[in-house]
């Protein structure tokens, strides 16, 4: 009897702890999306609902990348309540490059350097307030950065 009560109390505590964790902390790495070989599968794996092209999302990436092995990308947005920022390169063997999950403490501005195998559309998707927004840009690559 005593043991049962202890187990019950323990399970209640566990449940409370799980519920207390903010929603944005719960996600783990979306492995399937990172393995997907086309943008449509990545989007299908990662997101639910329509994605709207938005001028509130700023994607800073060079027009011409001389070295595809190191292409600087900065994503920022005027949107509030930003939950995640993802970066995809359409023509890479696996288009999903990075996904950043932001806490409410974050300022929605992220920079990272990425590889591009060839000239391609670079796309970012920002999840803010439960909705999805995107921006994209064509980048011309002079020397590819995925092989040797």
């Amino acid at each position: 009897m005593k043991l049962q009560r202890r187990a019950l109390i323990r399970s209640l505590f566990t449940a409370a702890a799980v519920m207390a964790v903010p929603r944005w902390l719960l996600a783990s790495r979306p492995d399937a999306a990172f393995d997907a070989d086309n943008t449509a599968s990545v989007v299908g794996d990662l997101f639910e609902g329509p994605i709207t092209e938005s001028d509130q999302v700023t994607l800073k990436v060079p027009d011409i990348a001389e070295n595809g092995a190191v292409v600087p990308v900065t994503v920022s947005t005027a949107l509030t309540d930003v939950e995640s920022i993802s970066v995809m390169v359409e023509n890479n063997p696996t288009p999903l490059v990075a996904m950043f999950e932001l806490s409410p403490q974050s300022v929605p501005e992220i920079s990272v350097r990425i590889k591009m195998g060839e000239s391609s559309k670079v796309q970012t998707v920002v999840k803010a307030g439960g909705k999805l927004y995107s921006a994209s840009k064509e980048v011309k690559v002079t020397i590819g950065g995925c092989g040797g």
């Binding site: 996600a27 092995a69 696996t94 490059v97 950043f100 350097r113």
Partner: peptide, 19 residues
């Protein structure tokens, strides 16, 4: 503050900036 999930497309010796 943030968690970054990366694939193989992030450059060698990764650089990341955030606020």
């Amino acid at each position: 503050v943030n968690t970054a999930f990366w694939g193989t497309g992030v450059s060698k010796n990764p650089y990341m900036a955030f606020k």
